[in-house]
C-alpha cells in the first residue's frame, strides 16, 4: 500500500518537532488572542475558527489514520441541529446545549464508524459519503429541523449563567477557548501512544495487525473522537451564526472540509487551521465573485493534488525542515 501523505516522515529527530510545534502554537494563540484589537472582523475569525476545529477533527482521521471520510459534515451538522434545538425549544443552558450536541455527534460517530470501518481505502470514503447522504435526507424530512428554513434565531444565552455570549467580544474569546481546547486535545492524541498506533495503521495496517494491535478498535476510536470534535465545532457554530441549517449536513460541506485540509496540508498539525482561514476568507471576501466559487474550489483541489500534495503548511515545513 502506498503512503497517503508525504508529511508523515518529514522529520526524524524526535525532540525538534515538538519544539517547533509548541513555538508555532504559542505564536498562533497570541495572534488569535489579539484579534479583537487588530480591527479584524471578529465574526469572520469566529467562523474560521469553527471551520478550523472541524478541519482539525477531520485531519485526525485522514492525516493520522489514513481514513478519508467523505461525509464528515453530518457530524458538524448533527451537533448544530441538536444544540440549536436544545437551546431554542428546550431552552437549556448553553453549556448543556453544547454537551447534548457533542453527545449526539459522538453517538452518530459510533454508529457510522461501526459500519464504515468494515471496508478500507476508497470504499471507506464512498460508504461515509453514502451514509452522510442518508442522514441528510433524514434531516431534510424531520420536522424539528424545519427543512429548508432551518432553525433560526437561536438564543445565545449566558454560559455558566454569567458569561454573556451576546457580546461579540466575549463570544469571541469563548469560541477561541473552545477551539484551543479542541486543538490541544487533538494534538495530545496525535502524540500519545494511541496516535502512534494510528500512524502505524496508516503506514502499514497488516503489520500493525501482526504486531498484535486490534486495528479496528483504534480506527473506530479515532473515528468517534473525530466525530465528537467535529460536533464541538458544529455546536460552537450555532452560537456564532445563531442558526442551524441543512447546508452543514450536505455533502458539499464534506467536500469543503476535505479541501481545507488538503490545501493546508494533510497530516500537519497546523495545516487545517491555515486552510480554514483561507477558505473562510474566500467565501466571505470573494462573495461578489459568487458564480466562480465552485470553479475556484475545484481548481484548488486539482492544483493541490497535482502539484503540492503536502499542502501549504506541509510545503513550508518541508522547505524549512521543520515539523508543523
Amino acid at each position: 500500500m502506498t503512503t497517503l501523505t508525504t508529511n508523515s516522515i518529514a522529520n526524524s529527530k524526535p525532540t525538534a518537532p515538538v519544539r517547533d510545534e509548541i513555538r508555532t502554537f504559542i505564536i498562533l494563540t497570541a495572534l488569535l488572542v489579539a484579534v479583537p484589537i487588530s480591527g479584524l472582523y471578529p465574526f469572520f475569525v469566529m467562523n474560521a475558527l469553527c471551520l478550523a476545529l472541524f478541519a482539525c477533527a477531520f485531519n485526525l482521521l485522514i492525516g493520522y489514520g489514513g481514513l478519508l471520510s467523505f461525509g464528515h459534515a453530518v457530524f458538524l451538522g448533527t451537533a448544530g441541529y441538536i444544540t440549536a434545538h436544545a437551546l431554542k425549544v428546550w431552552t437549556v443552558s448553553p453549556e448543556l446545549g453544547i454537551v447534548l450536541g457533542v453527545a449526539a455527534s459522538t453517538a452518530l460517530g459510533v454508529v457510522t464508524g461501526l459500519v464504515a470501518i468494515r471496508r478500507q481505502g476508497i470504499y471507506f470514503s464512498m460508504i461515509t459519503l453514502a451514509l452522510s447522504q442518508l442522514v441528510y435526507f433524514i434531516y431534510l424530512e424531520a420536522p424539528f429541523t424545519h427543512g429548508e428554513d432551518g432553525i433560526q434565531g437561536v438564543p445565545q444565552g449566558k454560559l455558566f449563567a454569567f458569561i454573556d455570549l451576546t457580546n461579540p467580544i466575549v463570544l469571541y474569546y469563548v469560541v477561541l477557548a473552545v477551539f484551543l481546547a479542541g486543538f490541544f486535545l487533538i494534538y495530545r492524541s496525535i502524540n500519545s501512544p494511541f496516535g502512534e498506533v494510528l500512524k502505524s495503521i496508516r503506514e502499514n495496517e497488516p503489520r500493525a495487525i501482526s504486531l498484535g494491535y486490534k486495528t479496528d478498535h483504534y480506527k473506530l476510536l479515532a473515528f468517534i473522537l473525530s466525530a465528537g470534535l467535529a460536533g464541538l465545532a458544529g455546536a460552537m457554530k450555532v452560537f456564532v451564526a445563531q442558526n442551524a441549517s441543512l447546508t452543514d449536513v450536505y455533502w458539499t460541506m464534506s467536500g469543503e472540509v476535505v479541501l481545507i485540509t488538503l490545501l493546508g496540508g494533510l497530516g500537519t498539525v497546523f495545516g487545517p487551521v491555515v486552510g480554514a482561514f483561507i477558505i473562510a476568507a474566500m467565501q466571505e471576501y470573494l462573495a461578489s465573485f459568487g458564480q466562480w466559487v465552485l470553479v475556484i474550489q475545484g481548481t484548488i483541489f486539482v492544483i493541490c493534488v497535482l502539484t503540492f500534495r503536502r499542502g501549504i503548511v506541509g510545503e513550508v515545513a518541508h522547505y524549512f525542515k521543520m515539523s508543523l
Binding site: Q242, Q283, S288
Partner: peptide, 14 residues
C-alpha cells in the same frame, strides 16, 4: 452584490 451560496450561515455573516 454578494453570493450567499444558499447557506444561511454564510448569508447571515455576509
Amino acid at each position: 452584490s454578494g453570493d450567499h451560496q444558499n447557506k444561511p450561515d454564510i448569508g447571515a455573516s455576509i
